[in-house]
Write a protein that binds this DNA or RNA. Structure first.
Lengths: 116, 116
DNA sequence: TTTTCATATGAAAGAGAATTCATATTTATT
DNA sequence: AATAAATATGAATTCTCTTTCATATGAAAA
């Protein structure tokens, strides 16, 4: 792209969409969300239960926190991360339904899709 | 990443999430969706109304079609693309609500976010 | 107050998706 | 049949996000 950066296309209000969906387009972050769905956890707990290196978890949580998909509260030297379920859970439900009713199982896009 | 590719972390069912959200994490595709929300259009019509080069539109539509966010029907030598609104519109509503109620306007993540 | 535990941060490297551009394909029109 | 119009495709490049890893910061424990 020449002049205007890609995000500029979104204008103001749509930066939200970009950050939100970019977060959800990431496997690790989805796994974090699914893990927090069950129970709030510290960084170390997430790191251990998902078997993922700590700083990776931290970076991921930073983005998730940014658009308030999660929020954190201090507890001693830990930070307990909690999922903001109000938006995420209904959103997952929508996709699950989409997968079942619209895609009817073949949503997995074999070969013809530019996304791997 | 060493062995397993990133998508593998998703296991089976979650490929859907990845393709779906990766599509939505893209400004052009969001703009296409918003344009089709108003009225179904051919590739050329989209290209002109968004002022974006044709093949770019085509590539974008291919991915969107893949996970059935849009679908196309032939009409002469044109392809009329139509938005599958059932999933997308409720999803946008969720985010709009999230932006208003949860983020209260500061969802734009200034600087502290890893996502540009 | 030094050590240890917990988390965050920065920057370089890596990976994946978007863009570009040339060209192929497909369908209509003449 | 040849041309034109509409769309699709492939591959190289570019762009953006993620990963990595070393290290910094902050808070409790010894």
């Amino acid at each position: 792209m020449k002049k205007s950066s890609k995000k500029k296309e979104y204008k103001k209000l749509d930066k939200t969409y970009h950050v939100f969906f970019t977060n959800l387009a990431n496997p690790l972050k989805i796994n974090i969300i699914l893990s927090l769905k069950r129970k709030k956890k510290s960084v170390t707990e997430l790191s251990k239960s998902l078997n993922i290196e700590q700083s990776k978890i931290s970076h991921a949580l930073t983005s998730l926190k940014c658009c308030k998909i999660v929020h954190a509260k201090k507890k001693g030297r830990k930070r307990i991360y909690e999922l903001n379920k109000e938006t995420i859970l209904p959103m997952f439900k929508l996709i699950n339904k989409h997968a079942k009713t619209v895609c009817k199982g073949d949503c997995v896009c074999k070969g013809d899709c530019t996304i791997k």
